[in-house]
Design a protein around this nucleic acid. Sequence first.
DNA 1: CGGTGTTTTGACGTCGGTCAATATGTGTGG
DNA 2: CCACACATATTGACCGACGTCAAAACACCG
Lengths: 230, 230
Amino acid sequence: MSFCEKCIVRKFSGLKTLNPEELEQISKNKTSLSFQKGELIFDEGEYLKGVYCVRHGISKLTKLSSNGKDQIIKFVSNGEVLGQRSTIANEPTNLKAIALNDMEVCFIPKNYFLENIKKNPRFSMEMLQDLAHELKEADDVIVNMSQKPVKQRIAETILHLENSFGLDEEGFLLIRLSREDISNIVGTATESCIRLLSTLKKEGLISTSGKRIMITDKETLQQVAEGLHH
Amino acid sequence: MSFCEKCIVRKFSGLKTLNPEELEQISKNKTSLSFQKGELIFDEGEYLKGVYCVRHGISKLTKLSSNGKDQIIKFVSNGEVLGQRSTIANEPTNLKAIALNDMEVCFIPKNYFLENIKKNPRFSMEMLQDLAHELKEADDVIVNMSQKPVKQRIAETILHLENSFGLDEEGFLLIRLSREDISNIVGTATESCIRLLSTLKKEGLISTSGKRIMITDKETLQQVAEGLHH
DNA sequence: CGGTGTTTTGACGTCGGTCAATATGTGTGG
DNA sequence: CCACACATATTGACCGACGTCAAAACACCG
Protein backbone atom coordinates (compact mmCIF):
# COMPACT_ATOMS: atom_id res chain seq x y z
CA MET A 1 0.00 0.00 0.00
CA SER A 2 1.37 3.38 -0.97
CA PHE A 3 0.20 6.91 -0.41
CA CYS A 4 -0.76 9.42 -3.02
CA GLU A 5 0.90 12.12 -0.96
CA LYS A 6 4.31 10.85 -1.94
CA CYS A 7 3.55 9.42 -5.33
CA ILE A 8 5.73 10.50 -8.24
CA VAL A 9 2.61 11.11 -10.25
CA ARG A 10 2.10 14.26 -8.22
CA LYS A 11 5.32 15.71 -9.53
CA PHE A 12 4.18 15.72 -13.11
CA SER A 13 0.44 15.64 -13.46
CA GLY A 14 -2.24 18.11 -12.52
CA LEU A 15 -2.74 16.15 -9.33
CA LYS A 16 -0.05 18.30 -7.77
CA THR A 17 -2.61 21.05 -7.24
CA LEU A 18 -4.71 18.93 -4.90
CA ASN A 19 -4.54 19.76 -1.23
CA PRO A 20 -3.79 17.20 1.51
CA GLU A 21 -7.42 16.41 2.27
CA GLU A 22 -8.28 15.86 -1.35
CA LEU A 23 -5.25 13.63 -1.76
CA GLU A 24 -6.12 11.58 1.25
CA GLN A 25 -9.60 11.10 -0.06
CA ILE A 26 -8.19 9.78 -3.31
CA SER A 27 -5.53 7.74 -1.55
CA LYS A 28 -8.20 5.85 0.35
CA ASN A 29 -10.20 5.03 -2.69
CA LYS A 30 -7.60 4.18 -5.26
CA THR A 31 -6.65 0.64 -6.16
CA SER A 32 -3.21 -0.48 -7.26
CA LEU A 33 -2.92 -2.48 -10.44
CA SER A 34 -0.14 -4.09 -12.41
CA PHE A 35 -0.02 -4.80 -16.10
CA GLN A 36 2.40 -7.05 -17.89
CA LYS A 37 4.24 -6.19 -21.05
CA GLY A 38 1.81 -6.34 -23.93
CA GLU A 39 -1.26 -6.40 -21.74
CA LEU A 40 -4.36 -4.41 -22.63
CA ILE A 41 -5.19 -1.61 -20.20
CA PHE A 42 -8.32 -0.50 -21.99
CA ASP A 43 -9.68 -0.84 -25.47
CA GLU A 44 -11.04 1.68 -27.92
CA GLY A 45 -14.70 2.33 -27.21
CA GLU A 46 -14.70 1.15 -23.60
CA TYR A 47 -16.39 3.20 -20.93
CA LEU A 48 -13.83 3.90 -18.24
CA LYS A 49 -14.83 3.91 -14.62
CA GLY A 50 -11.97 6.19 -13.74
CA VAL A 51 -8.46 7.31 -14.58
CA TYR A 52 -5.14 5.51 -14.30
CA CYS A 53 -2.08 7.13 -12.75
CA VAL A 54 1.09 5.60 -14.07
CA ARG A 55 3.56 5.00 -11.25
CA HIS A 56 5.93 3.00 -13.38
CA GLY A 57 6.11 1.86 -16.98
CA ILE A 58 5.19 3.02 -20.46
CA SER A 59 2.02 2.49 -22.43
CA LYS A 60 1.17 3.19 -26.02
CA LEU A 61 -2.15 4.71 -27.05
CA THR A 62 -3.33 3.60 -30.46
CA LYS A 63 -6.31 4.03 -32.73
CA LEU A 64 -7.41 1.46 -35.26
CA SER A 65 -7.57 2.78 -38.79
CA SER A 66 -9.94 1.50 -41.45
CA ASN A 67 -6.98 -0.12 -43.20
CA GLY A 68 -6.49 -2.38 -40.21
CA LYS A 69 -3.41 -0.73 -38.74
CA ASP A 70 -3.08 0.58 -35.21
CA GLN A 71 -1.79 4.12 -35.45
CA ILE A 72 0.17 5.10 -32.34
CA ILE A 73 -1.09 8.48 -31.17
CA LYS A 74 1.10 8.93 -28.12
CA PHE A 75 2.82 7.36 -25.16
CA VAL A 76 1.89 7.73 -21.53
CA SER A 77 4.52 6.93 -18.94
CA ASN A 78 5.77 7.49 -15.39
CA GLY A 79 3.99 10.29 -13.62
CA GLU A 80 1.29 10.80 -16.22
CA VAL A 81 -2.40 10.05 -16.21
CA LEU A 82 -4.24 7.71 -18.58
CA GLY A 83 -7.88 8.10 -19.52
CA GLN A 84 -8.24 11.76 -18.58
CA ARG A 85 -9.87 12.75 -21.82
CA SER A 86 -12.64 10.18 -21.87
CA THR A 87 -13.32 10.61 -18.18
CA ILE A 88 -13.66 14.36 -18.52
CA ALA A 89 -15.71 14.14 -21.70
CA ASN A 90 -17.75 11.34 -20.17
CA GLU A 91 -17.42 9.39 -23.39
CA PRO A 92 -16.12 5.98 -24.34
CA THR A 93 -12.40 5.99 -25.00
CA ASN A 94 -11.11 7.07 -28.32
CA LEU A 95 -7.91 5.10 -28.02
CA LYS A 96 -6.63 1.71 -26.99
CA ALA A 97 -3.98 1.57 -24.25
CA ILE A 98 -1.39 -1.21 -24.16
CA ALA A 99 1.49 -1.68 -21.74
CA LEU A 100 4.86 -1.61 -23.48
CA ASN A 101 6.61 -3.04 -20.47
CA ASP A 102 5.56 -4.15 -17.00
CA MET A 103 3.59 -1.37 -15.37
CA GLU A 104 2.33 -0.29 -11.98
CA VAL A 105 -0.64 2.03 -11.98
CA CYS A 106 -3.20 3.38 -9.57
CA PHE A 107 -6.82 3.41 -10.51
CA ILE A 108 -8.83 6.40 -9.31
CA PRO A 109 -12.60 6.09 -9.60
CA LYS A 110 -14.25 8.66 -11.81
CA ASN A 111 -16.29 10.48 -9.18
CA TYR A 112 -13.28 11.37 -7.01
CA PHE A 113 -11.57 12.77 -10.05
CA LEU A 114 -14.56 14.74 -11.31
CA GLU A 115 -15.43 15.90 -7.82
CA ASN A 116 -12.12 17.69 -7.57
CA ILE A 117 -12.61 19.35 -10.91
CA LYS A 118 -15.83 20.85 -9.64
CA LYS A 119 -14.56 21.84 -6.24
CA ASN A 120 -10.98 22.88 -6.83
CA PRO A 121 -10.58 25.59 -9.47
CA ARG A 122 -6.81 25.28 -9.46
CA PHE A 123 -7.16 21.61 -10.30
CA SER A 124 -9.63 22.19 -13.09
CA MET A 125 -7.45 24.96 -14.49
CA GLU A 126 -4.57 22.52 -14.47
CA MET A 127 -6.67 19.97 -16.34
CA LEU A 128 -7.65 22.61 -18.87
CA GLN A 129 -4.02 23.46 -19.46
CA ASP A 130 -3.19 19.80 -19.81
CA LEU A 131 -5.78 19.28 -22.49
CA ALA A 132 -4.82 22.53 -24.19
CA HIS A 133 -1.27 21.33 -24.32
CA GLU A 134 -2.21 17.95 -25.72
CA LEU A 135 -4.30 19.66 -28.34
CA LYS A 136 -1.39 21.74 -29.46
CA GLU A 137 0.78 18.68 -29.74
CA ALA A 138 -1.88 16.90 -31.75
CA ASP A 139 -2.06 19.82 -34.18
CA ASP A 140 1.69 19.66 -34.61
CA VAL A 141 1.45 15.98 -35.41
CA ILE A 142 -1.24 16.63 -38.00
CA VAL A 143 1.05 19.03 -39.82
CA ASN A 144 3.99 16.67 -39.67
CA MET A 145 1.96 13.75 -40.90
CA SER A 146 0.46 15.56 -43.80
CA GLN A 147 3.42 17.57 -44.97
CA LYS A 148 6.64 15.79 -44.17
CA PRO A 149 8.13 12.77 -45.93
CA VAL A 150 8.62 9.56 -44.03
CA LYS A 151 12.36 9.92 -43.55
CA GLN A 152 11.89 13.23 -41.74
CA ARG A 153 9.17 11.79 -39.59
CA ILE A 154 11.39 8.89 -38.58
CA ALA A 155 14.24 11.20 -37.66
CA GLU A 156 11.85 13.35 -35.68
CA THR A 157 10.41 10.33 -33.93
CA ILE A 158 13.81 9.09 -32.81
CA LEU A 159 14.69 12.50 -31.41
CA HIS A 160 11.33 12.74 -29.74
CA LEU A 161 11.76 9.35 -28.13
CA GLU A 162 15.12 10.40 -26.78
CA ASN A 163 13.58 13.55 -25.38
CA SER A 164 10.67 11.84 -23.71
CA PHE A 165 12.32 8.73 -22.34
CA GLY A 166 16.05 9.33 -22.36
CA LEU A 167 18.91 6.91 -22.78
CA ASP A 168 20.15 3.85 -20.91
CA GLU A 169 23.68 3.48 -19.50
CA GLU A 170 25.05 2.42 -22.86
CA GLY A 171 23.52 5.35 -24.70
CA PHE A 172 20.68 3.49 -26.39
CA LEU A 173 17.13 4.83 -26.36
CA LEU A 174 15.54 3.68 -23.15
CA ILE A 175 12.31 2.78 -24.84
CA ARG A 176 12.37 -0.38 -26.95
CA LEU A 177 10.01 -0.51 -29.86
CA SER A 178 9.51 -3.06 -32.61
CA ARG A 179 9.93 -1.85 -36.16
CA GLU A 180 6.22 -2.28 -36.52
CA ASP A 181 5.57 0.08 -33.60
CA ILE A 182 7.89 2.67 -35.09
CA SER A 183 6.15 2.43 -38.42
CA ASN A 184 2.83 2.82 -36.62
CA ILE A 185 4.08 6.06 -35.13
CA VAL A 186 5.16 7.55 -38.42
CA GLY A 187 2.24 6.02 -40.31
CA THR A 188 4.03 3.98 -42.90
CA ALA A 189 4.57 0.40 -44.03
CA THR A 190 6.93 -1.56 -41.80
CA GLU A 191 9.28 -2.31 -44.67
CA SER A 192 9.58 1.34 -45.66
CA CYS A 193 10.40 2.17 -42.10
CA ILE A 194 13.06 -0.53 -41.90
CA ARG A 195 14.59 0.59 -45.16
CA LEU A 196 14.84 4.22 -44.07
CA LEU A 197 16.27 3.23 -40.70
CA SER A 198 19.00 1.34 -42.48
CA THR A 199 19.82 4.31 -44.71
CA LEU A 200 20.08 6.48 -41.58
CA LYS A 201 22.42 3.80 -40.30
CA LYS A 202 24.51 3.85 -43.47
CA GLU A 203 24.69 7.61 -43.29
CA GLY A 204 26.11 7.22 -39.79
CA LEU A 205 23.36 9.10 -37.96
CA ILE A 206 22.16 6.19 -35.87
CA SER A 207 23.24 2.68 -35.06
CA THR A 208 21.00 -0.21 -34.21
CA SER A 209 21.28 -3.62 -32.67
CA GLY A 210 18.04 -5.50 -32.54
CA LYS A 211 15.48 -3.23 -30.99
CA ARG A 212 18.14 -0.99 -29.54
CA ILE A 213 18.64 2.34 -31.24
CA MET A 214 21.48 4.77 -30.59
CA ILE A 215 21.83 8.27 -31.95
CA THR A 216 25.38 8.73 -33.21
CA ASP A 217 25.10 12.09 -34.95
CA LYS A 218 22.42 14.12 -33.29
CA GLU A 219 23.10 17.32 -35.12
CA THR A 220 22.70 15.91 -38.60
CA LEU A 221 19.74 13.87 -37.46
CA GLN A 222 18.06 17.09 -36.38
CA GLN A 223 18.77 18.56 -39.79
CA VAL A 224 17.19 15.54 -41.43
CA ALA A 225 14.17 15.96 -39.17
CA GLU A 226 13.84 19.56 -40.29
CA GLY A 227 14.26 18.62 -43.92
CA LEU A 228 17.42 20.68 -44.29
CA HIS A 229 19.60 17.79 -45.32
CA HIS A 230 19.67 16.97 -49.05
CA MET B 1 -24.57 47.37 -30.09
CA SER B 2 -25.86 43.91 -29.37
CA PHE B 3 -26.29 41.91 -26.21
CA CYS B 4 -24.60 38.68 -25.34
CA GLU B 5 -27.82 37.48 -23.76
CA LYS B 6 -29.36 36.94 -27.16
CA CYS B 7 -26.26 36.13 -29.15
CA ILE B 8 -26.31 32.97 -31.27
CA VAL B 9 -22.92 32.11 -29.87
CA ARG B 10 -24.64 31.13 -26.66
CA LYS B 11 -26.55 28.40 -28.43
CA PHE B 12 -23.48 26.50 -29.42
CA SER B 13 -20.49 27.33 -27.28
CA GLY B 14 -19.78 26.77 -23.63
CA LEU B 15 -20.91 30.31 -22.98
CA LYS B 16 -24.41 28.92 -22.63
CA THR B 17 -23.60 27.87 -19.08
CA LEU B 18 -23.00 31.43 -17.94
CA ASN B 19 -25.68 33.02 -15.79
CA PRO B 20 -27.30 36.40 -16.51
CA GLU B 21 -24.93 38.42 -14.33
CA GLU B 22 -21.86 36.85 -15.85
CA LEU B 23 -23.21 37.47 -19.31
CA GLU B 24 -23.95 41.06 -18.59
CA GLN B 25 -20.47 41.54 -17.31
CA ILE B 26 -19.10 40.16 -20.55
CA SER B 27 -21.60 42.05 -22.64
CA LYS B 28 -20.38 45.33 -21.20
CA ASN B 29 -16.77 44.63 -21.88
CA LYS B 30 -16.81 43.01 -25.27
CA THR B 31 -16.01 44.88 -28.45
CA SER B 32 -17.54 44.14 -31.85
CA LEU B 33 -15.21 43.62 -34.77
CA SER B 34 -15.58 42.90 -38.44
CA PHE B 35 -13.14 41.17 -40.70
CA GLN B 36 -13.19 41.11 -44.46
CA LYS B 37 -12.77 38.06 -46.60
CA GLY B 38 -9.13 37.05 -46.53
CA GLU B 39 -8.26 39.24 -43.57
CA LEU B 40 -5.96 38.02 -40.82
CA ILE B 41 -7.61 37.61 -37.43
CA PHE B 42 -4.50 36.51 -35.64
CA ASP B 43 -1.21 35.00 -36.63
CA GLU B 44 0.68 31.97 -35.41
CA GLY B 45 2.73 32.88 -32.36
CA GLU B 46 0.75 35.96 -31.35
CA TYR B 47 -0.24 36.51 -27.76
CA LEU B 48 -3.99 36.95 -27.68
CA LYS B 49 -5.56 39.40 -25.32
CA GLY B 50 -8.81 37.48 -25.31
CA VAL B 51 -11.12 35.21 -27.24
CA TYR B 52 -13.24 35.88 -30.31
CA CYS B 53 -16.88 34.80 -30.52
CA VAL B 54 -17.94 34.30 -34.10
CA ARG B 55 -21.37 35.83 -34.67
CA HIS B 56 -21.24 35.41 -38.40
CA GLY B 57 -18.79 34.02 -40.93
CA ILE B 58 -16.24 31.27 -41.29
CA SER B 59 -12.54 31.30 -40.56
CA LYS B 60 -9.82 28.81 -41.29
CA LEU B 61 -7.15 27.91 -38.77
CA THR B 62 -3.84 26.98 -40.33
CA LYS B 63 -0.35 26.06 -39.28
CA LEU B 64 2.73 26.72 -41.34
CA SER B 65 4.73 23.63 -42.13
CA SER B 66 8.47 23.57 -42.69
CA ASN B 67 7.84 22.96 -46.39
CA GLY B 68 6.16 26.34 -46.63
CA LYS B 69 2.56 25.20 -46.86
CA ASP B 70 -0.24 26.27 -44.59
CA GLN B 71 -1.95 23.14 -43.36
CA ILE B 72 -5.59 23.80 -42.51
CA ILE B 73 -6.30 22.31 -39.11
CA LYS B 74 -9.94 23.23 -38.76
CA PHE B 75 -12.66 25.78 -39.38
CA VAL B 76 -14.38 27.96 -36.83
CA SER B 77 -17.74 29.44 -37.75
CA ASN B 78 -21.03 30.86 -36.52
CA GLY B 79 -21.57 30.32 -32.84
CA GLU B 80 -18.10 29.06 -32.06
CA VAL B 81 -15.22 30.59 -30.19
CA LEU B 82 -11.77 31.37 -31.57
CA GLY B 83 -8.62 31.45 -29.49
CA GLN B 84 -9.92 29.39 -26.57
CA ARG B 85 -6.93 27.09 -26.49
CA SER B 86 -4.22 29.72 -26.33
CA THR B 87 -6.16 31.82 -23.87
CA ILE B 88 -6.67 28.90 -21.54
CA ALA B 89 -3.12 27.68 -21.88
CA ASN B 90 -1.86 31.24 -21.58
CA GLU B 91 0.45 30.64 -24.50
CA PRO B 92 0.99 32.27 -27.86
CA THR B 93 -1.32 30.88 -30.51
CA ASN B 94 -0.42 27.72 -32.25
CA LEU B 95 -2.43 28.54 -35.35
CA LYS B 96 -3.16 31.37 -37.73
CA ALA B 97 -6.77 32.45 -38.19
CA ILE B 98 -7.98 33.91 -41.48
CA ALA B 99 -11.49 34.99 -42.43
CA LEU B 100 -12.87 32.97 -45.34
CA ASN B 101 -15.68 35.43 -45.87
CA ASP B 102 -16.82 38.64 -44.25
CA MET B 103 -17.14 38.07 -40.54
CA GLU B 104 -18.64 39.67 -37.47
CA VAL B 105 -17.09 38.71 -34.18
CA CYS B 106 -17.10 39.85 -30.59
CA PHE B 107 -13.87 40.17 -28.74
CA ILE B 108 -13.94 39.22 -25.06
CA PRO B 109 -10.91 40.25 -23.01
CA LYS B 110 -9.00 37.41 -21.45
CA ASN B 111 -9.66 38.18 -17.81
CA TYR B 112 -13.45 38.07 -18.11
CA PHE B 113 -13.15 34.72 -19.79
CA LEU B 114 -10.68 33.26 -17.30
CA GLU B 115 -12.56 34.75 -14.38
CA ASN B 116 -15.60 32.71 -15.26
CA ILE B 117 -13.57 29.55 -15.55
CA LYS B 118 -12.40 30.03 -11.99
CA LYS B 119 -15.74 31.04 -10.56
CA ASN B 120 -18.25 28.97 -12.46
CA PRO B 121 -17.57 25.22 -12.32
CA ARG B 122 -20.25 24.48 -14.90
CA PHE B 123 -18.51 26.79 -17.31
CA SER B 124 -15.09 25.32 -16.73
CA MET B 125 -16.53 21.83 -17.08
CA GLU B 126 -17.98 22.90 -20.38
CA MET B 127 -14.62 24.21 -21.50
CA LEU B 128 -12.99 20.95 -20.48
CA GLN B 129 -15.47 19.01 -22.55
CA ASP B 130 -14.91 21.32 -25.46
CA LEU B 131 -11.19 20.74 -25.42
CA ALA B 132 -11.67 17.03 -24.86
CA HIS B 133 -13.84 16.91 -27.90
CA GLU B 134 -11.40 18.84 -30.03
CA LEU B 135 -8.67 16.51 -28.91
CA LYS B 136 -10.63 13.50 -30.02
CA GLU B 137 -11.23 15.05 -33.41
CA ALA B 138 -7.56 15.85 -33.76
CA ASP B 139 -6.65 12.24 -33.02
CA ASP B 140 -9.06 11.11 -35.71
CA VAL B 141 -7.42 13.45 -38.17
CA ILE B 142 -4.00 12.08 -37.30
CA VAL B 143 -5.14 8.58 -38.17
CA ASN B 144 -6.74 9.67 -41.40
CA MET B 145 -3.74 11.64 -42.48
CA SER B 146 -1.28 8.92 -41.79
CA GLN B 147 -3.23 5.92 -43.02
CA LYS B 148 -5.62 6.90 -45.77
CA PRO B 149 -4.79 7.70 -49.39
CA VAL B 150 -5.52 11.15 -50.74
CA LYS B 151 -8.66 10.19 -52.64
CA GLN B 152 -10.29 8.91 -49.47
CA ARG B 153 -9.31 12.02 -47.59
CA ILE B 154 -10.81 14.23 -50.28
CA ALA B 155 -14.07 12.30 -50.23
CA GLU B 156 -14.14 12.52 -46.46
CA THR B 157 -13.41 16.23 -46.55
CA ILE B 158 -16.30 16.94 -48.91
CA LEU B 159 -18.68 14.99 -46.72
CA HIS B 160 -17.35 16.71 -43.65
CA LEU B 161 -17.81 20.13 -45.21
CA GLU B 162 -21.40 19.27 -46.06
CA ASN B 163 -21.97 18.17 -42.48
CA SER B 164 -20.45 21.22 -40.90
CA PHE B 165 -21.73 23.97 -43.17
CA GLY B 166 -24.61 22.52 -45.17
CA LEU B 167 -25.81 23.33 -48.65
CA ASP B 168 -27.11 26.43 -50.38
CA GLU B 169 -30.50 26.63 -52.15
CA GLU B 170 -29.11 25.03 -55.29
CA GLY B 171 -27.58 22.12 -53.43
CA PHE B 172 -23.95 23.24 -53.57
CA LEU B 173 -21.72 23.17 -50.50
CA LEU B 174 -22.29 26.40 -48.67
CA ILE B 175 -18.61 26.91 -48.00
CA ARG B 176 -16.53 27.97 -50.97
CA LEU B 177 -12.93 26.93 -50.96
CA SER B 178 -10.17 27.31 -53.48
CA ARG B 179 -8.53 24.14 -54.72
CA GLU B 180 -5.49 25.21 -52.82
CA ASP B 181 -7.46 25.39 -49.58
CA ILE B 182 -8.88 21.94 -50.19
CA SER B 183 -5.44 20.55 -50.84
CA ASN B 184 -4.25 22.21 -47.64
CA ILE B 185 -6.95 20.36 -45.74
CA VAL B 186 -6.03 16.96 -47.09
CA GLY B 187 -2.32 17.74 -47.09
CA THR B 188 -1.44 17.23 -50.72
CA ALA B 189 -0.22 19.10 -53.77
CA THR B 190 -2.85 21.30 -55.39
CA GLU B 191 -2.58 19.49 -58.71
CA SER B 192 -3.10 16.09 -57.14
CA CYS B 193 -6.17 17.40 -55.43
CA ILE B 194 -7.55 18.85 -58.66
CA ARG B 195 -6.91 15.62 -60.50
CA LEU B 196 -8.70 13.51 -57.93
CA LEU B 197 -11.60 15.91 -57.80
CA SER B 198 -12.00 15.54 -61.53
CA THR B 199 -11.94 11.75 -61.33
CA LEU B 200 -14.66 11.94 -58.66
CA LYS B 201 -16.50 14.12 -61.15
CA LYS B 202 -16.04 11.61 -63.97
CA GLU B 203 -17.25 8.85 -61.70
CA GLY B 204 -20.40 10.88 -61.14
CA LEU B 205 -20.02 11.30 -57.39
CA ILE B 206 -19.72 15.06 -57.39
CA SER B 207 -20.13 17.90 -59.84
CA THR B 208 -18.29 21.19 -59.76
CA SER B 209 -18.60 24.61 -61.27
CA GLY B 210 -15.84 26.95 -60.32
CA LYS B 211 -15.54 26.86 -56.58
CA ARG B 212 -18.98 25.35 -56.20
CA ILE B 213 -19.10 21.69 -55.31
CA MET B 214 -22.21 19.51 -55.31
CA ILE B 215 -22.49 15.97 -54.04
CA THR B 216 -24.39 13.92 -56.60
CA ASP B 217 -23.95 10.41 -55.22
CA LYS B 218 -23.56 10.61 -51.49
CA GLU B 219 -23.73 6.91 -50.85
CA THR B 220 -20.88 5.97 -53.15
CA LEU B 221 -18.91 8.98 -51.95
CA GLN B 222 -19.18 7.65 -48.42
CA GLN B 223 -17.93 4.31 -49.62
CA VAL B 224 -14.95 5.99 -51.26
CA ALA B 225 -14.29 7.84 -48.01
CA GLU B 226 -14.27 4.53 -46.16
CA GLY B 227 -12.02 2.93 -48.75
CA LEU B 228 -14.63 0.32 -49.66
CA HIS B 229 -14.84 1.33 -53.29
CA HIS B 230 -12.37 -0.39 -55.66
C1' DC C 1 17.68 -28.88 -33.34
C1' DG C 2 13.42 -27.60 -35.88
C1' DG C 3 9.37 -24.15 -35.07
C1' DT C 4 7.70 -19.31 -34.76
C1' DG C 5 8.20 -14.50 -35.14
C1' DT C 6 10.79 -10.52 -36.35
C1' DT C 7 14.18 -8.03 -39.27
C1' DT C 8 16.22 -7.34 -43.63
C1' DT C 9 16.56 -7.21 -48.58
C1' DG C 10 14.88 -7.44 -53.51
C1' DA C 11 11.68 -6.56 -57.28
C1' DC C 12 7.94 -4.20 -58.99
C1' DG C 13 3.99 -1.21 -59.51
C1' DT C 14 1.36 2.74 -58.23
C1' DC C 15 0.37 6.97 -55.91
C1' DG C 16 1.36 11.39 -55.52
C1' DG C 17 4.79 15.54 -56.19
C1' DT C 18 7.03 18.70 -59.42
C1' DC C 19 7.51 21.38 -63.49
C1' DA C 20 5.59 23.38 -67.38
C1' DA C 21 2.03 24.64 -70.68
C1' DT C 22 -2.63 25.84 -71.46
C1' DA C 23 -7.27 27.28 -70.30
C1' DT C 24 -10.46 29.87 -67.68
C1' DG C 25 -11.79 33.04 -64.81
C1' DT C 26 -11.93 37.62 -62.38
C1' DG C 27 -11.04 42.11 -61.45
C1' DT C 28 -9.03 46.51 -62.94
C1' DG C 29 -9.01 50.83 -65.31
C1' DG C 30 -10.02 52.94 -69.67
C1' DC D 1 -18.36 47.23 -72.59
C1' DC D 2 -13.74 46.05 -73.89
C1' DA D 3 -8.85 45.00 -73.15
C1' DC D 4 -5.44 43.97 -70.29
C1' DA D 5 -3.15 41.97 -66.26
C1' DC D 6 -3.22 38.55 -62.97
C1' DA D 7 -4.95 34.78 -60.32
C1' DT D 8 -6.77 30.38 -60.31
C1' DA D 9 -8.09 25.86 -62.58
C1' DT D 10 -6.93 22.15 -65.57
C1' DT D 11 -4.20 18.95 -68.09
C1' DG D 12 0.08 16.47 -69.58
C1' DA D 13 4.61 14.41 -68.92
C1' DC D 14 7.89 12.73 -65.91
C1' DC D 15 9.99 10.77 -61.81
C1' DG D 16 10.81 9.61 -57.12
C1' DA D 17 8.80 8.02 -52.81
C1' DC D 18 6.25 4.65 -50.82
C1' DG D 19 3.32 0.28 -50.47
C1' DT D 20 2.95 -4.60 -51.56
C1' DC D 21 4.39 -9.20 -52.22
C1' DA D 22 7.64 -12.62 -51.58
C1' DA D 23 11.75 -14.66 -50.11
C1' DA D 24 15.90 -14.87 -47.32
C1' DA D 25 18.50 -13.99 -42.99
C1' DC D 26 18.30 -13.79 -38.32
C1' DA D 27 16.65 -14.04 -33.76
C1' DC D 28 14.38 -16.28 -29.82
C1' DC D 29 12.50 -20.30 -27.36
C1' DG D 30 10.89 -24.56 -26.57
